[in-house]
Design a protein around this nucleic acid. Sequence first.
DNA 1: CGGCAGGCGGTTA
DNA 2: TAACCGCCTGCC
Length: 330
Amino acid sequence: MDYLITYKRNAAHAPVYGYAPISDINLRETFECGQCFRWRALGSEDASEADEAGGAKKSDGAQARATESYIGIARGHIARIDYDKKEKHLHITELGANTNKTDATELWPAYLDLNRDYAAIKRKLSRGDDTMKTAIAAGKGIRILKQDLWETIISFIISQNNNIPRIKGCIEKLAALYGEPIELAGTEKNKAEEIAILDEVGLTPNELPTSKVLAGLKEEDLAPVRLGYRARYLIETAKAVEEDCLPETFDDLNKLCGVGPKVANCIGLFGLGKMDSFPIDVWVRRVMSRMYKFDECDVKGMQAFAEAKFGDLGGFAQQYLFYYIRELEG
DNA sequence: CGGCAGGCGGTTA
DNA sequence: TAACCGCCTGCC
């Protein structure tokens, strides 16, 4: 790694980690390319800060903000992430009380995949492929997050035949009802403020329920979560994980109730770090038919094509293609 | 009202 | 083993 890490504490005595410089990263593209469901954009209230920094661009309303900010929950940690696009500085402010000394050097770099050379990946995928060049241009700041395995299992079972706002709502309701609270740092006043901010963006400061808790539930216990027929899948899968253990391969994933090839590929890619995974959903089918002239029904053909053409980089290719077609037609 | 949203399980031939 | 079909729910 060639970035520098700084460390300080803010007024609420929360640790703040600073990374510089980090290239090939864009928070919106990373958090809104459909791989995760517990991060929310913060409308930057720091217009004055931008002015102090010499921005002086507030006359141009269309001007892209110099800093993008997200708040979210990952791996049991609540954090705010700010990225200064101009200086290429990444700041992570932990809001939870459960911080560790290694968070700055291990947890967040691993989660955000900071130690991977995305420029090299993009070069490799672009070589002799104008379609991929176009797709990469649309989402060149995407990072594939290394998420908690159980969270990705829950999330992508819920995602089937569903839409993103509702998926997010289901996940928060699930956390609120059956997840353990994550203690916030700072004074009671600070905590109240943080909870208010989280509430405003629709986040609950709780973990997702463990497989043990979910395995002990009846379908009617999940009725308030409004999962529909997916409630049964979740409970069955939780029972299977409790009786056996967490899956480690595509085939093991595929055996879980409610997990077919698409969901298994998503879990493999985002939860197991299997970067050769190539999840094919309706959008990927769409982009493959438009850009690579496939029949939209020919999922097998697409899968074989991706394996041969993208190989170990399949997951990255899928994310660029997916993000591109969503931007274009979503 | 039917159509649809980042599929899957179950049933058929 | 490939092709269908129904599905909870919420929003248009």
